[in-house]
Structures are given as structure tokens and as C-alpha cells.
């Protein structure tokens, strides 16, 4: 079970954002992509999530084609967990509802149990009924992470996942992400401009490697 990206090219309004990006992430490992602001990190994640259509190249997961010039698997069928750097929480839904909504395949009881388990793990057990506007920035970030990982996706795409967390919370959250990865999530791709965040994620994890995006080109470090 491997995520493989070959010669990916993305243009937005005729301007090249990603240029011949290739990447191979085997199951159970973590890929860390760093780079300065505007390098194309978010676009790469959005392309892997199926939210941006590449102009050339190929994305495969576990032998199945996700993207190539002829075929495209839509985002909702990719079994991914995506955390946007803007978090994008739905303002009208409570914390618990954010998670429950993504667990449609489970029974109501299983959903409640899973929501309680996840919220306890990230320290938001007492905040289940709160709306996003009633949470701090760090709490909102944890909700976004929980929403992405609660349904045990095969690939987790995390864009600046600890940007708003203090170091202690960040450590706990990363521990939880690793535990989820060990249980179910096969591949973790973390995008960040913070070297500290990259180092924390790579410590003790089975990393597929670290890459740096610069002006649309992906360089293996």
C-alpha cells in the first residue's frame, strides 16, 4: 500500500504552481514536506486530496489510479483525512457534530463512542457541545485534526497541523496522531514551514523522508 506521485504538474490561472513533483510514500510511514510560504505546499496537499485537478502527472494509491490525464477519483472516495491550514470548521455545528458527521458508516452508538474516545484523547472531552466560535485557536486546531482522523482514513494530509498549539499540547497531539497512524492511518503527509514542527513529527517515526518544496520543485533532503 503505497502513495505514489509521478511528474505532477499543477497550474492555476495559467501560472505553474507545481512542476514535475514526484514522491513515494510507503504504508505506515510519514512524509514531511517543508518549504517557504508560497512554495506550493498547500496546493500539493489539495491536489492529493482531489480538490485541485492537475494539468499533468499521475497519482496512485495502492495500485489504484487517483489522478491521471484520463481518470480521476473524487475527493469523497479517496478515504483521506485533510486538515487545512485555515482549519475550516463549520460555524453552525458543535464539536461533537463535526466528528459524528464524518462517521456516517457507523451505528449511532459506535459513533458516540468513537467521538468520546477521540475528544478525550485530544483533551476536548468537555467541549463536545461547544461551537467553533466558542473555542480558542488551539482548540479549533485540535477539532480540525480530530475531524480528519476520527474516521480512520487511509491517508492523512495535514497542513500546518500544530501551527496554533503550544509545545505541550503539540507534543500530546502528535503522540495521538502517531497512535492513530499505528492503529489505522496508513500514510501521513505533513506539510509545514516550521522546522521545529517537522523535527517533532520525524522524531521516532517511521519517516519516508523529508522533502523541501521550492518554487514548485520538490527536493529530497
Amino acid at each position: 500500500m503505497t502513495l505514489e506521485v509521478q511528474d505532477l504538474r499543477v497550474e492555476i490561472d495559467g501560472r505553474p504552481i507545481l512542476n514535475n513533483v514526484s514522491l513515494r510514500v510507503p504504508a505506515g510511514s510519514t512524509a514531511i514536506i517543508t518549504g517557504p510560504s508560497g512554495a506550493g505546499k498547500t496546493t500539493l496537499l489539495r491536489t492529493l486530496a482531489g480538490l485541485v485537478r492537475p494539468s499533468a502527472g499521475r497519482v496512485e494509491f495502492s495500485g489504484a489510479v487517483w489522478n491521471d490525464p484520463a481518470e480521476r477519483v473524487i475527493a469523497e472516495q479517496r478515504s483521506i483525512g485533510w486538515v487545512s491550514q485555515d482549519l475550516v470548521l463549520w460555524p453552525h455545528l458543535s464539536v461533537a457534530a463535526h466528528l459524528e458527521l464524518t462517521l456516517g458508516a457507523l451505528t449511532r452508538r459506535q459513533r458516540r463512542e468513537r467521538v468520546a474516545e477521540v475528544l478525550d484523547a485530544i483533551g476536548l472531552g468537555d467541549f463536545a457541545k461547544r461551537l467553533p466560535a466558542e473555542l480558542s485557536g488551539g482548540q479549533q486546531q485540535r477539532v480540525a485534526l480530530a475531524r480528519a482522523l476520527a474516521r480512520k482514513p487511509r491517508v492523512a494530509l495535514l497542513d500546518e497541523p500544530t501551527g496554533q498549539l503550544d509545545s505541550a499540547t503539540s507534543h500530546n497531539v502528535i503522540e495521538w496522531i502517531r497512535k492513530e497512524q499505528a492503529d489505522s492511518v496508513r500514510i501521513l503527509i505533513v506539510v509545514t514551514h516550521s522546522i521545529q514542527c517537522a523535527n517533532t513529527f520525524s522524531e521516532g517515526a517511521s519517516t519516508a523522508g523529508q522533502w523541501q518544496l521550492q518554487e514548485g520543485e520538490l527536493l529530497h533532503l
Binding site: G50, L51, E76, V88, T102, A148, R151, P153, L157
Partner: peptide, 17 residues
């Protein structure tokens, strides 16, 4: 914003949901 829909799609929700 359209990102609200994108977040839903990335979370595996159908268009109806």
C-alpha cells in the same frame, strides 16, 4: 466559502450530506 464544501468532500461526505 467554498472551503466549507471542500472540507466536507475531503471528510468523505456525499454532496447530499
Amino acid at each position: 466559502p467554498v472551503s466549507h464544501e471542500e472540507a466536507g468532500r475531503a471528510a468523505g461526505l456525499s454532496n447530499r450530506t
